[in-house]
Every structure is written in C-alpha cells, then in structure tokens.
Simulated assay, not measured.
Amino acid sequence: MADDIYAKIRAAAQELLAEGVWPTVVEVRERLGTGSNTTINNTLKAWRKDFLARAAAANRRPEWPAALGAAFNAVWQQACQQAEDALADARREAFAERDALAEACTALEAEKNEEAQRVASLRLDLAATHQELAQAKAQAVLLSDELATLRTQLAALGAERDAAARRLADAQADAQARQAERDAQARVELAHARETAERREALAYERLEGLRIRLYEQVEDERRRMQEEKASAEDALRQMRREHGRLSDEWRERLAEREREIGRLDGQLLAAQQAGSEARSEAETAHQALAALQAAWQQLPERMTALAGTREEEGGVPTGAIVGLLEAAQQGLLTPKAGASGA
C-alpha cells in the first residue's frame, strides 16, 4: 500500500513535468487528491534527485574534459540546490500562509460560536420578555375584573336606592289615604274629643317629633352607608391607580421597547378611571336625592301645621283636626315602614 502511494506520487510528478510544470507538494497533492504533505515532500525529494541524476547523465558529453564535466556537474548541483532552497522557501511561505489561514478560520469559528451564544442569550431574553408581557396582560385582566365588580356593586346600590324611593312613595300614599280617613272620622267625633283635645294634641306633637327624629336617623343612616360604600369604592379605585402606577414604572424601566403595550394598558386604566368617575357621579346623584328626601321630610311638620290651620278655618275646631292629622301621619307612616322592613 505504501509502495502504491509512492508510485502515484512519482507518476503525478512525471505528469506535471510533462505538462511543463515543476512538481511541488501542493500541486502533486491537488493532482492526487490524497496523501500527507510529509510523504509527498519526501517522495518528491527522492524523485528530484533521480530525475536530476538522469538529466545530468543524459546531458553529459563524452568529448568534454573530465575537469569541465566536473565543473558542469558542480554548477548543475548548485543550481539544483538553489532550486531546492527556493522550493523550500516557497513551501515554508505556503505553510505559513496555511497556518495563518487556519488561525483565521479558528478565529472566525470562535466569533461564530460567540455570535451563536449571543443569539441564544437574546432568545432567552426575548422569551423572558414574552413571559413578563403575558404577566402584565394577566394583571390588566384582573384590573378589568375588579372594575366590573365595582360597577356591579354600584348598580346594586342604585337598585337599593330606587327600592327605598319606591317604599317612601308608597308610605306617603298610604299616609295620605289614612289622613283622609282620619279627617272624616274626626268630623264625626269632634264633639266627643274637645275635653281631651289639649292632652291629645300634646301627645300627637310628641309622637310626630319622635317620628321625625326616627325618619331623620334613618335617612342619616342611609346617607352614611352610601358615603361609606362610596368611600370604599374610591379607596379601591385609588388602590388600582397606585398599583397601575407601580406596574407602569416597573415595565417602563425593564421593557422600554414595549412602550406601545404599556400605552394600551394606560388606555385601559383611563377607561377604568372614567368608569369610576361615572360611578362617583351616580353616587353623588343618589346623595342629592336622599338630601332632597330629607328636606321634604323636614318640611312635613310645617305642611301639616298649615293643613291644620286650614282645617281650623273651615271647621272652626282646630284641636281635633290637628290631632287627627298627627295620628294619621303617625299610624300611616309607621305601619308601612314596618311592613316594608318585613318585606
């Protein structure tokens, strides 16, 4: 097998020489496509010596003197040695260039590996960014759910307010009906009530005052409850605002390249703030309605007093009419209130 590679190297060198090309290690290796540089170099050295010896023998002329032939052989050997030295220099330059290319390839491979590591690191950072963005979206969904819960609670408060208004209207209608009935009964029993009119009148005033105080306390309790619920809703809204501010600052520092997503979250928060403003407006409207109701109840004694004066001018007996109006107001308002509470 070794003899075969040596023969191939010699044959390739002979072919190159026949083509007018002086055989070198690189050219022989390119011609063969295989073989180590050391084997090719050693085989070429032996082939060159044989070739030069054969050329010298073929070119030797017998008629030359021995001294001239020896001088020619010395010159020829020197020329061959110079050719060998030049070939060795060229080979060293080629090897140096090969080593430089190998080092450049190694550097490029290292740069490629570093670039691959940077790409992998960037991919990991991108995955982490996607995960953090998903968490931000989940936080936004939670804020939307809390806002929807607040809206539901405000709607329930509005329904309770409407129910209270209806109960109050029913109580007023019932009181008016009972007042009409008591007026008729008072006209019939007026003659029998004169001796106790003063006592019953004082008692009626006391009962009316107690009823007014109870109604005022109920209205005040309702107003305080509405204010507490409003304050609770506002606290929850402020908490959401603070949480949103904290999240916005954190994402703005860590994810500057996600400004558009943060802007979208800010838009959702603005919508939540607008919804909270609407809820506060509704609560303020309910408060104003309760205040108007309270004012109406505060004006009730004055209206009843005016009605008692009108009855006095028409019937000529003020005490019985006042007593009847006050009892009708007391029984008519307290009875529906108890029924409403039971319902």
Rank of each mutant, 00 (worst) to 15 (best):
R258M: 10
A236N: 04
R280Q: 08
L293P: 02
S281A: 01
L237W: 13
A308H: 06
M226N: 13
A292T: 01
L307H: 12
P301V: 00
R264E: 07
E312F: 12
L333M: 00
Q299G: 15
R246N: 05
L333F: 06
R224Q: 14
R303N: 02
S232T: 11
Q218C: 01
A256L: 09
A308W: 07
L215M: 00
Q299W: 05
T285D: 06
Q330C: 01
L334G: 01
R224K: 11
W251T: 15
L290T: 07
R252Q: 15
L333H: 02
E278Q: 11
G276Y: 09
M240Y: 07
S277T: 03
A236W: 07
Q273E: 04
L326F: 14
L255K: 05
A329D: 02
M240G: 15
P318D: 03
R246F: 04
E259W: 14
W251G: 11
G324H: 00
A279N: 10
A295I: 09
L237A: 15
A233W: 05
R242Q: 09
E284R: 09
L270A: 07
E284I: 10
S248N: 08
R241E: 14
D221H: 13
R224C: 13
E222A: 15
G263A: 07
D249R: 15
H287Q: 06
G309R: 11
A283Y: 00
M304R: 00
L237E: 10
R214I: 00
L265D: 07
I262M: 13
A279S: 12
G276K: 05
A289K: 01
A272D: 08
T310F: 07
L265S: 11
Q218P: 04
E243D: 15
E253F: 06
E217A: 00
L255C: 09
Q273L: 02
E243L: 08
E261M: 10
